[in-house]
Design a protein around this nucleic acid. Structure first.
Lengths: 335, 335
DNA sequence: CGCTCCGATGTAATCGAAATCATCGATAAC
DNA sequence: GTTATCGATGATTTCGATTACATCGGAGCG
């Protein structure tokens, strides 16, 4: 591969001029520029990335870590991230942490090695080395969270109001006449689950239905949806409605409902969360909470770019709008 | 951030020794190594990636381009890639090309700039600049394809035997007694579609059913599944079975079947392709072709690493095993 | 007409780590 | 006891681009 020296020699100019042709073409005379471009094309020159990065201390890359890339919710957020990043001239380094701390730390090390200018993490944990960085540099640390807002983290973030969304789901079910509601949460260590649970409890209490609430803890997977919903359905005083904290678990719930010879929504109403692309093609079409996934992606990138451009002075925690999408999986309870 | 010079000074050794502590610890005396490690920890040193990369001309990164990352099939392949890459000390640069040539070229340029040591592309197109590279360097070019084998590309690849898999699907349907079969393909420019179509045609001819075949061209999306299947179902001489070239289109097909008051599989049998995680949770559970997605991911990484380590002399086109998974969406045609 | 200033370009230092080559002391061989 | 050998470490060059500073010629000004 040709280097800048080769181009300079071929074009009969200095390397400085070649460099300027790319980074500040207005400083170089048109005939010179053309001469250089000709040499560039002739030799098929592309500036070496490592050299540029070493000199400028910038990589033009964003590291994005995600707990599970095969989850359609996350992959849509990533799409948004990728799109916004590309538009700003950044590319995306992807890290699938698989919910494992060891992998999170591996990617944290990558970030410290300066393999990326910024980090977006879509999980709820921030490895210690990075937390230290945040503590030292404050709001100018180029680290941003998506989806999992937790005040203690001290990083900017973009997310929906999970508590309110979950409360709205419960209101919807109560309004339909349900009294015995089962809830399948995700792991409670993540704010995404604990916030939603708080919303569920608040709504139940407002309606005086807290004691009729049944709860099971899932892990957002389809399989855990089958299992946990199954347990709720098998208890005495079977709930007439089930609220799963993810659409995938709701898919599993549908299966559990069918396995017991019950019908949704006639016997059991079902609500999911996320509104993944598949939700409206399930049978029955799933009532769920729609998150602005791509927008979350755009927003976290914007927050990060603000920090990188030194435009951000204080933390920003952006709450984006969600929407309860009522479809065919919820109905009044059986008589 | 501390540099190797800082560490060397702090530990009272030369930078060469510090470097050796990381890259060849067996060459340095234990007390010296400890002294250095102490300094490393004290200063929180991490080797600067750009500097290392400039010197070694390696990035330890693999660029992976994918036509649509929100497609669960691809995201599972990527998971496999990511896992195998990480195990070998590589990290993954993700490029979502959105089926757009412009983006494919953007990522091709990244690769030429040496932002990654190797390229895995899961689409079917290879931008010209890269095709030129392949033409020039032959089998040692670190570019590998996943899923979309096409002999003309002259790169190593890992994929299933799409033609045979599609033929098996047709055999299955014919064995059940179906005669009028509708097929919803993907864009025919991609081998993934044309190979499967070839298999469909071959099987139909063997059974003397070629004239009863109906075909519609989709784009692998759910929506196109609804639309194209709908058209097939609305034609006179409605097919009693529909074979969609992706599970997503099959999900759409289910919707189209329902919209017409038909039942699957009693009135119309349905087969998908890919066996994405959701296929077995649809209702009815979907008959489909299971692809070893993560294994494809592992395999393309292995092929690439072989090239990077100079162990690969000739092209390798690996065919991995698929499996027809018969579930509840296929049954004999109505009497 | 000479001086200043500016625009265009060249020269060379620099980024941080890796790797080659040099050095030094100690051991072993004769 | 001298010298070849080797193991541990240091000095220095190198990777390829960016950029601060230097240079040079010509335009503008008094």
């Amino acid at each position: 591969m040709a280097t800048i020296q080769d181009v300079a020699r071929d074009a009969g100019v200095s390397t400085a001029t070649v460099s300027r042709v790319f980074s500040a073409p207005e400083l170089v005379l048109e005939p010179t520029r053309l001469k250089v471009m000709e040499a560039v094309n002739r030799l098929g020159y592309e500036p070496n990335f490592a050299a540029k990065s070493l000199r400028t201390l910038r990589t033009e890359k964003i590291l994005v870590t995600v707990p599970d890339i095969s989850n359609p919710f996350f992959s849509q957020v990533i799409r948004g991230v990728e799109e916004a990043a590309l538009a700003a001239g950044y590319s995306v380094l992807l890290g699938d942490t698989r919910h494992e701390e060891a992998r999170e730390e591996q990617y944290a090390a990558m970030f410290r090695r300066k393999e990326a200018d910024g980090l977006i993490f879509l999980g709820h944990r921030l490895p210690d080395v990075l937390a230290d960085m945040v503590a030292a540099k404050g709001a100018r640390t180029p680290i941003v969270n998506g989806c999992e807002f937790r005040p203690g983290l001290a990083v900017s973030s973009a997310h929906i109001d999970n508590e309110r969304a979950a409360a709205e789901v419960m209101e919807h079910l109560y309004d339909l006449g349900h009294t015995r509601v089962g809830v399948v949460t995700g792991p409670l260590a993540s704010p995404i689950s604990s916030d939603r649970l708080a919303g569920v409890l608040a709504a139940a209490q407002r309606r005086g239905r807290a004691s009729a609430l049944r709860m099971a803890i899932g892990d957002f997977s389809i399989e855990s949806g089958v299992r946990q919903t199954g347990e709720l359905l098998d208890e005495p005083g079977r709930p007439t409605a089930v609220f799963c904290f993810s659409d995938e678990m709701a898919m599993g719930a549908l299966e559990a409902i069918r396995q017991r010879g019950l019908r949704c929504p006639q016997d059991v109403s079902l609500v999911g969360f996320d509104d993944i692309r598949f939700a409206q093609y399930l049978h029955p079409q799933l009532t769920t909470v729609s998150q602005p996934t791509e927008q979350i992606g755009h927003e976290v990138v914007r927050l990060l770019l603000d920090i990188l451009a030194d435009r951000a002075s204080a933390l920003q925690n952006v709450t984006l709008p969600h929407r309860l999408v009522v479809r065919a999986s919820t109905a009044p309870p059986p008589a």
